[in-house]
């Protein structure tokens, strides 16, 4: 696959070669699992962008005539304790979740690339120092720290919450990137680039980053997941003020008004399910990337199933040796017979 695109890139003019390169840089998304995940994620992004158009009511519109109503034609997902439309709240809540999730992940990934790649490329005490810093951030418990930091501010805006989540969540990505950079550093093509006298920033940006894209994407997706879970959890706990609507805030209200005790499922199920669906979408993307990075994950299952069809057990080495010839022979005859 990559070889073919490389050949194409050589033959075609410059403009196309850029797109071909870009395409191969995102090759880890080219599989069914990742595409499904990206589609679901894209749906939520669209909902977040067009929230004002999609939502039938204002999320904070109080209507005392219709309180605690079950789903109906007027209110597809029912109403809250003061007659707010739950569907509109869920739609508007998407915005906060998406914005914080992506902003935090962008900040965290930027820090992770900077620290991870530098720590991996350098050696000696500088590398060890950056590695120790990464490990400190990995070990210090994040959520308690966020709770304490968030309570410093009376009314933290969304970007601030995203920044705090990003500042706390970069360490894992940096650790993975450092390990991979360390293994890349001694490969021949990097040595050759260095011997050619390429400057450090070109080596890192042009030679190394394309080879780190899959890991960067994986750590980005992981950070989005962590940030969304942290945001909704913090909103549910009530650390983040209820003025900015997101799915966690809705659950905070639902829990405070006893929706869980009174079986008002239309109030507490949709926001939680939305978080779960977005989580599934993100882990699907990560599954796809995992299988791209480590093809054994995909091929192992396929190979085992193929062997099972032939009546072999993948774990039984002895049977494979002795039974291989007769089974394949009988397979061939049955195939011929069926033809």
């Amino acid at each position: 696959m990559t070889i073919r695109t490389a050949q194409l890139a050589e033959k075609t003019p410059r403009g196309t070669s850029f797109w071909a390169r870009l395409g191969s840089a995102f090759a880890m998304f080219r599989n069914a699992k990742s595409i499904t995940g990206l589609a679901i994620l894209g749906f939520f992004v669209l909902v977040a962008i067009f929230a004002d158009v999609l939502a039938p009511y204002s999320p904070t519109k109080v209507d005392n005539t219709s309180r605690f109503q079950a789903p109906s034609a007027a209110h597809w997902l029912g109403t809250t304790h003061i007659g707010e439309d739950v569907l509109s709240q869920v739609i508007h809540g998407t915005r906060g979740v998406i914005v914080v999730g992506f902003l935090a992940a962008i900040i965290a990934t930027f820090i992770a690339i900077t620290i991870g790649v530098i720590a991996g490329y350098l050696s000696g005490w500088k590398s060890e120092g950056l590695s120790a810093l990464t490990n400190v951030f990995l070990v210090i418990p994040g959520l308690p720290l966020i709770i304490i930091v968030a309570s410093i501010f009376e009314d933290p805006p969304l970007w601030l919450i995203a920044a705090v989540l990003g500042l706390i969540g970069w360490a894992w990505g940096a650790r993975v990137l450092r390990a991979q950079t360390m293994s890349l550093r001694n490969r021949d093509f990097i040595q050759a680039a260095r011997a050619n006298g390429e400057p450090l920033r070109r080596i890192i940006a042009v030679e190394m980053l394309p080879n780190l894209m899959a890991l960067i994407a994986a750590s980005f997706v992981g950070t989005v997941t962590a940030a969304i879970l942290s945001l909704t959890t913090l909103s549910y706990i009530g650390v983040i003020p209820v003025t900015t609507y997101n799915w966690g805030t809705i659950l905070n209200w639902a829990s405070a008004q006893g929706a869980f005790q009174q079986n008002q499922w239309w109030w507490y199920l949709p926001p939680g399910l939305c978080i779960a669906i977005i989580g599934v979408a993100l882990s699907l993307i990560n599954f796809g990337i995992d299988e791209y990075v480590n093809p054994r994950l995909r091929s192992a299952g396929e190979r085992a199933r193929a062997m099972k069809k032939k009546g072999l057990d993948v774990n039984d080495a002895v049977t494979v040796v002795r039974a291989a010839t007769p089974t394949t022979a009988s397979d061939a005859t049955t195939q011929k017979a069926s033809e």
Binding site: I275, G279, V280
Partner: peptide
Amino acid sequence: TFLGTIPYFW
């Protein structure tokens, strides 16, 4: 994995 992506408090 699905059960793991559900927010714990929910």
